[in-house]
């Protein structure tokens, strides 16, 4: 079983490295965004912290949200080129196949967080956090990547082509971008944000980076919420894709 999963993970990672669009969206885009935001907002704001300091935790989630698009495009592209059918006539189970996507995207999320975190530090971001706090931030990001895989699967179910998938994925990307990362929230938008996975991740990482213990009750509650959300979204994504995804 592991031989199959590892082979698929290797293939997905090679896709990330060798497909320029994937490489840009998943690695270069978050890096460029962090540098631009650091340059633009690093000197703004009052008191001890700059505007960039308050935005940085949102940037971590921001990068991971775009996994929705790459996952959706990857599935639709493989479907269009007959590769999903081809894999389907091997003994590989759908659990192994989708599991390999989840593992790959968790890897990518970890890389993204590492890149954005290091570049943020370079741009002057100084979080009040210890090693355990950073580890907890990574755990939150892993759950967010799980949500992105699930939402990517739902997008791939609806989309007929890779091009359509990139457009439709914004249904899930935009609300999270505006109401679940670094944008200030109003009373109304906070209600919407309550349904968005990235909101809980940004809130938790912001709190952790402000020096609160990663095992504080509020953090653990947010961890529980994002864990539950990710499980529900992934199961829903797998169910919809298997039933209506026209493999």
């Amino acid at each position: 079983m592991m031989q199959r999963v590892l082979a698929l993970v290797k293939m997905e990672l090679l896709k990330l490295i060798r497909e320029p669009a994937n490489l840009f969206l998943n690695m270069l885009f978050p890096a460029i965004l962090t540098l631009v935001f650091g340059l633009a907002f690093g000197g703004l704001g009052g008191g001890d912290s700059s505007l960039f300091d308050t935005m940085a935790p949102g940037l971590f989630a921001y990068a991971c949200i775009f996994l929705i698009m790459t996952v959706a495009m990857s599935f639709t592209d493989d479907r269009e080129s007959g590769l999903l059918k081809r894999i389907n006539v091997t003994p590989t189970t759908s659990t192994q196949f989708i599991g390999s996507h989840i593992i790959t995207n968790m890897f990518i999320a970890v890389f993204q967080l590492a890149i954005v975190f290091l570049l943020s530090l370079l741009m002057g971001f100084r979080p009040n956090v210890d090693v355990l706090g950073v580890i907890m931030a990574f755990v939150f990001m892993l759950f967010l990547s799980l949500c992105s895989v699930g939402l990517g699967l739902i997008t791939a179910t609806i989309a007929k082509s890779a091009g359509a998938a990139s457009g439709i994925s914004f249904i899930f990307i935009l609300p999270q971008m505006f109401f679940g990362t670094f944008m200030p929230l109003t009373e109304a938008t906070r209600v919407i944000a309550a349904f968005l996975p990235s909101y809980y991740v940004t809130e938790a990482i912001t709190t952790i980076f402000n020096g609160v213990s990663p095992f504080a009750v509020e953090i653990l509650m947010q961890l529980g919420i994002i864990a539950l959300m990710s499980i529900i979204i992934v199961i829903l994504g797998i169910f919809l894709f298997k039933k209506y995804g026209k493999v």
Binding site: Q3, R4, L6, A7, L8, R86, T90, P91
Partner: peptide
């Protein structure tokens, strides 16, 4: 070829 060979373990 190696990918699909691995899928057949």
């Amino acid at each position: 070829v190696e990918l699909f060979g691995n899928l057949f373990e």
